[in-house]
Amino acid sequence: MEIARHWRLQRHRYSLVGEVCNHCGVKIFPARDVCPECNAPAKTPYTFSGKGEVYSYSTVHHPPEGFEHFAPYVVALVRLVEGPLVAAQLTDVEGEKIEIGMPVEMVTRKLRDDGSKGTIVYGYKFRPVIAGGAAVVAKDAAV
């Protein structure tokens, strides 16, 4: 149990909050307080859209301790539309063909569950973008 540590990170984890450099405009995730491009201080919070595409991916068959209940699960580097790469799990992908370049969107899910007595850690994962428009199609069909 690392309650304080997860609590410190939850703002970043729940909603993909990073930073923007006020000097050169680069969007930063994870937050690091110093711009990786121009080394200027960068402490202005920036909430990412959560949209991106798969840059690389793998399936973890041998999980680290704490993740056994979820295995096998898919992990990826996601290139956010705002620029940064993010390392995260892909979720809701059973039966889906995963490819580099595939559009994904951020969701907040359970990252780990420290047993029935511990806390639940929530954070960002990415899933294939859900196609919209089903209601419109249904309505048109009804007409």
């Binding site: 793998s58 973890v60 390392a87 850690v121 954070g123």
Partner: peptide, 13 residues
């Protein structure tokens, strides 16, 4: 914080 806690094993990286 941003790799291991997201479930990425060293092999996965």
């Amino acid at each position: 914080d941003f790799e291991a806690q997201n479930g990425l094993s060293f092999v996965a990286l």
